[in-house]
Simulated scan of single mutants.
Amino acid sequence: MKDPLDLLDTSSLLSEEERDIQATVARFLADRVRPHLPEWFENAHFPRELAPELGKLGLLGMHLEGYGCAGVGAVAYGMACLELEAADSGLRSFVSVQGSLAMYSIWRYGSPEQKQQWLPKLAAGEAIGCFGLTEPDFGSNPAGMRTRAVRDGGDWILDGTKMWITNGGLADVATVWAGTDEGVRGFLVPRGTPGFTTHDIERKLSLRASVTSELILQGVRLPESARLPEARGLGAPLSCLNEARFGIMFGAVGAARDCLQTALAYADARIQFDRPISAFQLTQRKLADMAVSLNTAMLLAVHLGRLKERGRIRPEQISVGKLNNVREAIAIARECRTILGANGVSLEYSPLRHANNLESVLTYEGTSEIHTLVIGQALTGQSAYR
């Protein structure tokens, strides 16, 4: 049956494998996740037991090669992110952080021993990872980080605090970035290491079905074997963030699509003045404008995915995708809420939950302002950061 929201037939741009992956993820979410999302959001709960189920589906680090990872293409990974965020941004965030930050940092910059120790367990969901870059006073400017690692004989001593870390309270291993006398370096910090503690952030209004934490490192002693040997300088963690931002541009499309599907179904069923509200011009204008934005965002995501598969994608192009698609998704979520009227503030319907979640997505992994400046620098050759 033709999807009325696929105005531009973007599904025809996908391979059979990509469509199969999308359908498999959608079926799993419909059966296992969607019935529980309002409760998880209301109770600020992320079920850790989902991790091995996601691993069994091959979703964790699915775009990486080897070590139990599926090794699928960029667009196939993106379509999985789309379906995950169509359910809830918290779920896509879990998969993004696990695969594109924690696992990718080890896969790209780790030693053979580190890869063998952690990647198979992370891919299977038997272990959970997190990525410690952001600090309480340094979000958009990670170069100013205060977390330090100093040599002590053959060991390293880490001190500092990381903030707003997805999966932090669940993680069995944290990739922690710290300043050293040799520049920024990455370290693998297993849970249970003396001096390493986590504190979950409570009373959130967004990403409630997700664990967000503070990482505290007080005199954490690590052997040299805990350092990521190939990570030298700030470019290493920033390259990991580009991997995660790529998934976000697809995920935002999923959130927007779910909102629009909800609003369209509601408008067809809601009767006012003896007619469904979908028959009124103002409602149709809202639906049409949102459908155009949704299809444009989808075309952008697929195009950038194909560039990534050919090894041709540039950081500023990822910034275009993240900036545009999240901005459009949050506008669609808010507009869909208006079609639902008072019912739209209930957890029975998804648009306001998505809108709340997208407030975080708009900010994390690069604020809209930062991505705007990345694009501005690409256009002018001038950096406006300082």
Rank of each mutant, 00 (worst) to 15 (best):
A124G: 14
A149M: 03
A149R: 01
A231Q: 10
E16R: 00
L122P: 15
G341V: 06
E53M: 09
C240V: 05
G247H: 03
S383E: 11
G58Y: 11
L5D: 07
L264E: 12
I201F: 11
V97N: 13
Y109G: 09
E65G: 04
A74H: 09
I216A: 15
E83Q: 10
I106K: 01
A331C: 03
G169Y: 08
A178H: 04
T380Y: 03
E126H: 13
G66C: 07
V184F: 00
S140K: 00
H303K: 09
V97Y: 01
A76W: 00
Q22I: 01
V345E: 15
A329R: 02
A26H: 11
L215D: 02
L60K: 04
E365K: 14
A301W: 01
V292M: 05
R337A: 15
D289R: 04
L158Y: 10
N343E: 15
R208E: 14
T24V: 08
G129S: 06
A263T: 09
S239N: 14
G366D: 07
L299I: 11
L119G: 02
A123L: 00
A256H: 08
K204N: 05
N167Q: 11
C130P: 15
T212A: 05
S278P: 15
A267D: 12
G58V: 07
G219W: 04
S111V: 05
I201L: 13
R334C: 10
W40H: 04
G376L: 07
P47A: 02
W156K: 00
A209C: 13
A288C: 06
T283F: 02
A288F: 06
P35R: 05
T10K: 00
F131M: 04
G139V: 13
V75N: 09
N141K: 07
G153V: 06
K308G: 01
L340Q: 07
A252Q: 06
A329Y: 06
G195K: 05
T367C: 02
L340N: 09
A171Q: 13
D200H: 08
G376K: 11
T166N: 07
G71N: 08
G110A: 02
Y266P: 10
T180Y: 10
P276D: 08
I106C: 03
T180N: 13
N325K: 02
Q281R: 11
E53S: 12
F273T: 12
G254C: 06
V25E: 03
T161L: 14
